[in-house]
Design a protein around this nucleic acid. Sequence first.
RNA 1: GCUCCCAUAGCUUAACGGAUAAAGCAACGGUCUUCUAAACCGUAGAGUGUUGGUUCGAUUCCAACUGGGAGCGCCA
Length: 602
Amino acid sequence: MNTPRQEMEARVAQAVAKLFSPVPSGPYVRPCPDPRHGDFQTNVALVQGKQSQTNPRELAEKLVETIAWNDIAKPPEIAGPGFINFQLKTEYIAQQIGRRWIDERLGIPVVEKPETLVIDYSAPNIAKEMHVGHLRSTILGDALARLYCFLGHKVIADNHIGDWGTGFGMILFGYKREGDPEKLKQDPFGHLETIYRKIQAKAKADESVREAAKRELVLLQQGDPKSRELWAQFLKYSLDALEQIYQRLGVHFDHTLGESFYNDLLPGVVNDLVRRGIARESEGAIAIFSEGKLPPKDDPFLVSDKESASGFRDNPLLIRKSDGGFNYAATDLATLRYRHEHFRAERVIYVVDGRQQMHFRQIFDAARRWGYDGMKLEHVWFGTILGPDKKPIKTRDGGDVKLKALLAEAEERAGKIIVEKRPELSNSEQASLARIVGLGALKYADLAQNRNLDYVFNWEKLLAFDGNTAPYLQNAYVRVRAIFRKAGEQTVKDAFLKVQALAKLEPSRPAIFLSERVELELGRKLLDFADSLLLAAGEYRPHYLCLYLFELATVFHKFYEACPVLIPDEAVRNSRLVLCDLTARTLAQGLNLLGINVVEQM
RNA sequence: GCUCCCAUAGCUUAACGGAUAAAGCAACGGUCUUCUAAACCGUAGAGUGUUGGUUCGAUUCCAACUGGGAGCGCCA
């Protein structure tokens, strides 16, 4: 079913098409930035007035006559230079509440044309333990996967792990000399990382170590059985350890097709690109250069250069090194082809750090030239996580925060507060609450902010339980559950049956009362859920959903203060129970799409 | 040198080209015999880095500049 916004949009669009030619482009309707003006507004009269040199207020009057507002809105008001403000009728809101409430999907329709999309996220390196730097991609990608799935798309969550490449030469070299199978089994990342660091330090000082590591890599890539066997062991133990983290995070993948999976395809990919004239040999390497068809400013394979005669110089993308090894660009292109051919992906979403923008611009353009121009390719980038010194948390100097430790501390901090607030709960209940609340707070702190911004990693901030945070939303849910517990199962059941019967049999008779101002405000807000989902999905920005849920929870808390639910007046009580129920389910559903659970009490 | 990103209240952020720029945190002052005070109510606090431009209208679009960050053939 349509949201009020979509309903208004359709009606205004109809009137616009009837009155104006050429038709100005939409969307025409948006929520009023200031609720005092109304629920929705359109400024199409201003736009059209300018284009046709007519008085916008006159156009606005014509529009008001033509728009079919009567059944859902009060008489529109023309304001200022020609805004038209709409205010929804209370009866319409009440009726829409009822329709959403009886629907399992809360009135959110499934998309008409489901798309097959691959979402590429998390992508840790299996030689290193997951750290804070993997957090954003993992939870952002997971949220997007859940969101698109709920909207009805066919989502393929693919973890493109770094299980191949140069680092493994060092590790193999080191492991063959001082590896310990027992330690590997116990703590794969810890053991591999220790080895990696040691060898790296040695390699810095000793040329022969570097050479030896390179030879190891070549052996591995050529398929040397001993090396492959060791590598397979690293992979197995590392994947098991990764899986533990993902389970704890509640993150799911449909596939884990890492870099190694594409290894055998790389020569074919590079040959194909060369044969088609997209890539060519250069200084012993093979690289993709500009095809000269784009405006130089927009060409990712050119950068400006005052020294050069044309004003631009090449900015190639290397796909094969001069020593015959393949760069990750080759892997990315092979992956893209596989996703097209095997998954029939119509869209691929890369949830990857913003530092790789140039790389993806080049990959996407190369893919287009290669013939994969039917696929939508999106680099959903995010900012860097900074340390307290406002510099990126580095992975090599040992200063990185392990994800495991991060999760443990989130739980521990949440646990302290829970023990304090709910001393009467059992230890296991407290522990389970701590897990859900701590993890929720951790995820939400990241999801609630614009992904493009860098942020300074800070325990207090990540785990603050005030303001726009997961616990605040979880608490709104908890308050509803408390009301239902107090009312008793039977009372709630009876109330719901009565309201349902009224809604079905006599749609004209009100079953939902929105007589208090906060009730109306809550009812109004409840209808906007779908708008926030579509906005969040369309822009790949879950923070729009967070913002909506925060606003919903805020209105609900106000409602909770002002409108006692369990009162003698049965009709009002039933109506409020329904408002509570729809609020709780909307919060639970919204949080679920963010990968966050709710609790019965906290 | 080139390219990209960022700049809004003390701090962290929001604002889908529009009306008097919105929240949270921190600060200050109130509210628990009544469904969980991880809550609510109130006070104070910015004119959006600078300079121009486009527009009836710019935090939003464009240009230049300043400051911060990142990336820029043979790591991923």
